[in-house]
């Protein structure tokens, strides 16, 4: 199925969890936060959170800024 991740289309397997997505993107060791359709998904619930077709996912990190 197709979802949007940070504004770009991403083809992921059906029944994909947030945890699986993070692994596909090789971000499992990174300090990130995730939002799906404007709702924050707590890191502790990634394994139980199933993504759906057309979900809009934002994955953010802390970078240098003023």
């Amino acid at each position: 199925m197709i979802i949007q991740v940070n504004g770009e289309s991403q083809d992921i397997p059906d029944h994909c969890t947030a945890q699986k997505l993070v692994e596909i993107l090789q971000m499992q060791n990174d300090k990130i936060a995730m939002e799906v359709n404007l709702e924050i998904i707590p890191r502790s619930t990634y394994s139980n959170f199933f993504l759906n077709q057309n979900d809009k996912v934002e994955i953010v990190r802390a970078i240098g800024g003023g």
Partner: peptide, 30 residues
Amino acid sequence: MTVAIRRTNIGQKPGEPNLLDVLPPDQITY
């Protein structure tokens, strides 16, 4: 120290150094 919250770069090389590694939040208040 102020920090910005921005999108991660999809496809970025894993393990690339980031701000949290060089200035960990337990050493400076984010």
